[in-house]
Design a protein around this nucleic acid. Structure first.
Lengths: 210, 210
DNA sequence: GCGCAACTGATACAGGCGTATCAACAACAG
DNA sequence: CTGTTGTTGATACGCCTGTATCAGTTGCGC
């Protein structure tokens, strides 16, 4: 078993070239040949490390998902030295919004995958669909904690509230990508709703960033 | 000026074939030849009535937009014999959610266009982008009216509230299309937030601080 | 040395794409 | 009738797609 080259490294290089193209030009522009050129390798090499295009597509999507998870971990960790439910929720949601270069890249690339996944569900099967659900229930847990701390009205349903917040954030992200709104404007909208959710007189500023 | 055939009728037939394919298989499957077959006409005819594919794409998008507007008008009209701001807002938002066949078709087709518009902004220029903004300010107007009627807390910013509601609805729609949630579940989430917005316990509720 | 396995370059295949071309046909104007 | 205009079928162009093939070359175990 002689491994003269590092397979993982090669695959990563190619997959990230694919993601770069998906970000800047959309997935329909990401042909095998274009990806090879972007990665600076031959078409043959792309074929060698990914036997089929679907394999490449799925692998790249998994890497993108991992990148987003890393980013979210960072933002949650930076939510405050004593992390409150509100700061955690704010961190997660504003982390998803396309407000800086990294989040713009990630959300744009996810958007590029969106319609593809819709029209080819078999591609989505390979990908862990469980992740958005986990995020939603994690948010719900934070809402429940905030209720016990008296920061959120007890009448709120935690699951429905969390689902709504996440959906709103995704919708705001779409509008930012569509050029309808700036990232800051989206943060303002989100902040206003978080103010409304957590008693407006709460201990955290609405537009907490990083 | 002899018009042996009705151009508008032909164009409509072809454009709607395109929309049907975009709905069921995505826009990437909508080639000129496939559209022609779906419409039951020859490739030449598609070329004749739409000189280029972009022209067809844009025309079909305009028709889709018109269909959504008709649907919204109907839903607003059916909002109640004395239409209250709340019933109007509820009608508009739930009209957009993919809960019945027509709305599923429309939202799916819009989703198919989404990434295309993102990667080719020149296509979006041709389309009236002003329409979502109009919708948003219309919602804001309803929120303001509800505030004057005492149904919504005065502390709410109407524009930000409207933007958030619309974004949430769009996000919920995406999750429904993605199979993450049923249309009824999305309606439940939306309803919960509308309950929260319009005081669940009747008008003039000073529950919110400040 | 030999042989085997990993790896790669060049090139070809069949097929789909958007678009263009050209001859033909239908109907009406004069 | 002729001529003009609107409409159509058949077909071809050049390009790009994902994938396959096959002869190479490299490096390591033996």
């Amino acid at each position: 078993m002689s491994t003269r080259v590092d397979h993982e490294q090669r695959r990563a290089r190619i997959a990230e070239a694919l993601l770069r193209i998906a970000d800047t030009q959309g997935l329909q522009a990401a042909s095998m040949r274009v990806v090879a050129a972007e990665a600076g390798v031959s078409l043959r090499q792309v074929q060698y490390y990914f036997h089929t295009k679907d394999e490449l597509l799925i692998d790249a999507l998994a890497r993108l998902s991992a990148q987003l998870q890393v980013r979210m971990q960072k933002w949650i960790a930076a939510a405050g030295s004593p992390p409150t439910p509100r700061s955690i929720v704010t961190a997660i949601l504003s982390c998803i919004l396309p407000t800086d270069d990294e989040s713009r890249r990630i959300t744009r690339t996810y958007a590029a995958y969106y319609t593809l996944v819709l029209s080819e569900p078999k591609l989505a099967e390979q990908h862990a669909t469980t992740y958005p659900d986990m995020l939603e229930s994690f948010l719900a847990k934070q809402v429940r904690a905030a209720q016990q701390a008296g920061e959120v009205a007890a009448a709120r349903d935690p699951e429905l509230t969390a689902a709504g917040l996440l959906a709103m954030t995704n919708g705001l992200g779409s509008s930012v990508l569509g050029g309808q709104r700036s990232g800051e404007a989206a943060l303002t909208v989100l902040g206003h709703h978080l103010d409304e959710l957590f008693g407006a007189g709460g201990p955290e500023s609405p537009s907490a960033a990083k």
